[in-house]
Amino acid sequence: MNTTTTRVGWRPEGTVYGALLNFRHEMDLWAPRMNEAPYKAPPKAPVLYVKTANTFTPSGQPIALPAGASVEVAASLGLVMGAGGVAGVVLFNDVAIAHESYYRPPVKTRCVDGFLGLGPECVPLDRLGGLDALRDLEIELHRNGVHKQTTRLADWVRDAATLLTDVREFMSLRPGDVLMTGTDCLPEGGRELVHAGDSVEIIAPGFQSVVHHFVAEELT
């Protein structure tokens, strides 16, 4: 696959990683607790998690919500690796069961079936003006047609280039892998909650919108 080509119905071909605590507001909210046990210091390297292949849900397809779970959504920008570095960029709707342990979120909260809404295309990086230009992007999240959040990438703790450099100090990223650059929280520290019947749209200049409808999980 040529990852620099825009594709409708795009799907990851490698591992998808997400970065935690990569927005300044959330880092500021957590700062008073970072010196507490068991960590006793802020993280020095990027804190990552994995979104497994069972979570991938193309734009336009429904996402099922487990019964009784409090589920949150957030917009994220993903860097798609090519043979020579970042080849393209994708919008994501990162879905998770709300939880308190943000340093080490349990896999079961983030890797529920269907819990990564995929953007419909991989936009070539050069079309967006390169890595440095990504900081100028603003991503809007709408629920049921109402604007709920604007994520400003100027508020990254580590910009795209710095995040890539720091991650590569302890692991390799191969062609087809995706590095999501983090999600921002709402002013009070949480993320937008969704319920069965809700529709979420994520919008950013230069990208096709990412749209997902949420439905109740069918019990068997």
Rank of each mutant, 00 (worst) to 15 (best):
V50F: 03
V8M: 12
G82I: 09
A31D: 07
Q61G: 00
T15K: 13
L77V: 14
A64Q: 12
N2M: 01
L29D: 09
R33L: 11
L79R: 06
M34I: 02
L79D: 08
K51L: 02
E26Q: 15
L65F: 07
P43I: 07
A45K: 13
L48G: 10
F56K: 10
R11Y: 05
A53Y: 05
L29A: 12
L77Y: 01
V16W: 08
T52E: 12
L65C: 02
Y49V: 15
V47Y: 09
L21K: 04
K51D: 04
A75Y: 02
A45T: 13
T15P: 05
M27Q: 15
G60E: 10
P62R: 10
G9W: 02
V80Q: 05
Q61N: 12
E72H: 13
V80N: 09
V8F: 14
R33H: 12
R33K: 14
Y17M: 11
V73M: 02
A45C: 00
G78E: 05
W30K: 09
R7I: 12
R11H: 11
H25N: 11
A67H: 12
L29F: 06
Q61W: 01
V8P: 00
L79T: 11
F23T: 10
N35C: 05
A74L: 00
G14D: 09
V71P: 07
F23L: 11
